[in-house]
Amino acid sequence: MAEQLHAGIAEYKIGQEPFTLAALGLGSCVATVIYDAQHHIGGISHIMLPDSTAFSAAQITNPAKFANLALPQMVTELRAAGATGPLTAKIAGGAQMFKTTSKQLNIGQRNIMAVQATLAELAIPIIAQHVGGTQGRTMIVDLADFSTMIRIVHEGSIYI
């Protein structure tokens, strides 16, 4: 079995085959994996918040926490690590973990929209996603072939 690189909350990891990448315990957070199929290299981020615009530069101590900062930074590091081919993405998470009627408080949906918008700005197509709902998830990605398993709390596993 390949060694697994885990991206904790507000982290991202970059690896190359034979590694696998994982983001465990996704609730309202969104895991985003960006992959170069030519070189079997990819990165996975565990995004906690949609964007950094409500914070001053001095308040942002961890850019990996925010979709609008983490994803461009991860792409830059992927390119520096040898990802020269076209990039594609898969995303998972963004659950609404608490009952609320306020759209402002649905951080999961806001995270999904921010990740989708940031990937669109980076011209990286999302080729699969498992997002929303009310269940937590784990995402595990094999860098050999970009196969992606989503474990859903109390529901089992699927592949996207």
Results as ranks from 00 to 15, higher is better:
L122I: 10
G94T: 02
F98S: 10
L105S: 14
I9K: 15
L143M: 09
R151F: 08
T118R: 12
G27I: 01
Q73A: 14
T118W: 07
A81M: 05
G8K: 12
I47P: 03
I14C: 09
F98Y: 13
I127Q: 12
H154C: 03
I34T: 07
A117R: 14
E17W: 12
I160F: 07
D36L: 07
Q135E: 12
E3M: 11
L105V: 07
S147P: 06
Q96L: 12
I9Q: 10
Q16M: 10
S147I: 03
T61P: 00
V131K: 04
A23K: 08
A83Y: 08
C29S: 13
A120P: 06
T32S: 15
G8Y: 10
G108A: 09
G82P: 05
S157F: 01
A117Q: 14
P125S: 04
K103L: 14
I150T: 01
G43S: 05
F98M: 13
V33F: 04
T88R: 11
V131Y: 05
F19L: 13
M74K: 02
A144G: 15
P86A: 14
T53N: 12
G82D: 05
V30S: 09
A54C: 10
F66I: 00
D36H: 00
G27C: 11
V75T: 11
L5T: 03
L87G: 00
G93D: 02
Q135I: 01
A22P: 00
A89V: 04
S45K: 06
A22D: 00
S45R: 05
Y12G: 00
P63L: 00
L21I: 01
E17M: 11
G132T: 10
A144E: 11
K13F: 02
M1K: 13
L26P: 08
A114F: 01
L122E: 14
V153H: 12
L69C: 02
V131A: 09
T88W: 00
L87A: 02
F146C: 11
S102K: 13
E17S: 15
L119G: 02
Q96K: 14
G94I: 05
P125F: 09
G133A: 07
H39N: 15
V141G: 03
T84S: 15
E11D: 13
A57L: 09
I47M: 04
K99R: 10
L122T: 10
S28M: 12
G94M: 07
L78P: 02
N68I: 02
A31I: 05
V131Q: 08
R110A: 15
I127R: 09
K65R: 15
Q104T: 12
G15T: 03
Y12H: 14
S157L: 03
A31C: 08
M48E: 15
P72M: 15
M1P: 09
G15D: 06
Q116F: 02
R151L: 14
E11N: 13
R137W: 03
Q73H: 09
T101F: 14
A58W: 04
I160K: 00
T84G: 07
G8E: 08
M1C: 07
H6V: 14
